[in-house]
């Protein structure tokens, strides 16, 4: 069970790291617009050569 004494600090540090990341992202304004970015990722590639899906109007 002594391994917990090693794992505990690691888990806490990891947790703090992600909390820090979240705070940083929020302050930077990454969560201000939750609608547009999900579309933007679809536009990254040049889609010229991909045929549009059929049976769609």
């Amino acid at each position: 069970m002594e391994i917990i004494l090693v794992l505990l600090p690691i888990s806490i540090l990891l947790g703090l790291f992600f909390i820090g990341g979240f705070v940083w992202m929020t302050k930077k304004g990454q969560y201000d617009d939750l609608e547009t970015p999900k579309f933007k990722m679809l536009l990254e590639d040049k889609i010229k050569n991909i045929a549009p899906k059929e049976n769609q109007k």
Binding site: F22, T26, Y31, D32
Partner: peptide, 24 residues
């Protein structure tokens, strides 16, 4: 409005992180 929104999000996020760690 923006800073209010962000601080609200921060509060929620920190509560989520805190609550889940305490739960462990």
């Amino acid at each position: 409005k923006q800073s209010e929104e962000r601080s609200y999000l921060l509060k929620t996020g920190i509560a989520a992180a805190g609550a889940s760690n305490v739960m462990i």
